[in-house]
């Protein structure tokens, strides 16, 4: 299962980070190796097997509809990288 550099680039875009050309090469090789290894699972017969998404038997964990205090605005903004008039600021979205 070889992954091309184009595929690597596509995945990097979905993952929201840039990769250098060098990184694309390395990742294409390493991801191919890891997936090659993982491909062993295709030999397992899983017809009639249910997937496990939850390892506990818990169901219906619900909380009552009660309002709890929110953070103070100082706490909210304490770690903000960029702030404009007390609000989180981001570059234009387009």
């Amino acid at each position: 299962m070889a992954i091309s550099e184009e595929e690597v680039e596509h995945i990097a875009k979905l993952s929201a980070f840039f990769l250098s050309d060098e990184e694309k090469k390395v990742f294409a090789k390493q991801l191919s190796e890891v997936l090659d290894c993982a491909d062993v699972i295709s030999e397992v017969d899983t017809s009639n097997v249910k997937p496990t998404s939850y390892i506990t038997n818990l169901v219906n964990v619900l909380r009552e509809d009660e309002v709890k205090p929110s953070l103070s605005i100082e706490e909210v903004m304490k770690n903000a990288p960029h702030v404009y008039e007390g609000v989180f600021k981001v570059p234009r979205i387009i």
């Binding site: 992954i3 980070f17 990742f27 993982a38 699972i41 295709s42 397992v44 097997v49």
Partner: peptide, 27 residues
Amino acid sequence: KRRIMLGTYVLSAGHYDQYYSKAQMIR
């Protein structure tokens, strides 16, 4: 980054059943 990429790949369109869903069944 390597793990994010691998995870994104196995969940992405066209690979979910082959990898993610299969892995959950073997789990």
